[in-house]
Design a protein around this nucleic acid. Structure first.
Lengths: 140, 140
DNA sequence: AAATACAGTTTACATCCGTAAACAAAAGAT
DNA sequence: ATCTTTTGTTTACGGATGTAAACTGTATTT
């Protein structure tokens, strides 16, 4: 029972190109993804069509070739995507998971400082311990 | 083209119960999940069977009812799952994504301290800026 | 021993996803 | 104006997933 449209992994790769370029023709997307993956042009076209159906992309059809533009901001998509995954995790394990991500991700000085800041603020009201709720009924 | 078996969201919920209990009978899992979700017992049985096929669970068939045990540690599964998601993200955005998770997750004092520690260590060798590689061919 | 209850296995079915060919329409070239 | 190329749309197909009923074999009750 899917409430909200989600982006598949393959679709996500298409969006990355378009987010980064701001907008793009199908050919730009195809050229770049043919270098990054083994996908055929036809496959990438399918992904573009599906992204339009899901309303993550729209085509400016004023001229041909169409120019595709994102209908969702990259930051919003990231927010939805990572929080969607974290919703599945045991509450008690989220800290561990974040620590794991920090260890395994390249992060800039500036971002590191920002995250430390967020954590420091959070520490002011953080609980001593977070209880596991894996066995409890979700209220709501 | 799937190289490695992955756990679906629904399957993940079953594993959470078994990880938390250490081991469980199908009935224990069913009782708990019927409170947390709208799933029918039959649905949960299907998930258990699929998890066995994927070798995330095994049944101790010495006695009936069978006792199901995890074949993968929760921490390993979390590691795989979150890093699998992060692999899709623009390198440049990983810091933002982590910051977002920190803001939206409840984290214990101890975990906050640990993450700050990891970040502080990381800062010693972190780059000033992480470049976006969204348009580049993946080497490898 | 027969009837019943319980738990594990098979089968089912719609949708999504990865993957891509075939087809159609528009633009460019001759 | 027709041929060709480009680009957008339809159709296709196998496997994964959410969802669950039906079936079967074992254990318990009468």
């Amino acid at each position: 029972m899917k409430e909200v449209e989600t982006m598949s992994k393959a679709e996500w790769q298409v969006m990355r190109i378009i987010w980064t370029l701001g907008q793009a023709t199908s050919n730009q997307v195809i050229d770049i993804l043919e270098k990054k993956t083994d996908w055929k042009a036809a496959t990438i076209k399918t992904l573009i069509i599906r992204l339009q159906k899901k309303e993550f992309l729209k085509a400016d059809e004023a001229n041909r070739p169409y120019i595709y533009q994102p209908l969702i901001a990259e930051d919003s998509a990231i927010h939805q995507s990572v929080n969607n995954l974290f919703d599945d995790l045991c509450c008690m394990k989220k800290g561990l998971a974040i620590n794991d991500l920090v260890e395994n991700s390249e992060i800039s000085q500036k971002d590191i400082a920002q995250i430390i800041q967020t954590l420091t603020d959070k520490a002011k009201s953080a609980p001593e311990v977070v209880d596991c709720n894996c066995l409890e009924a979700d209220l709501k």
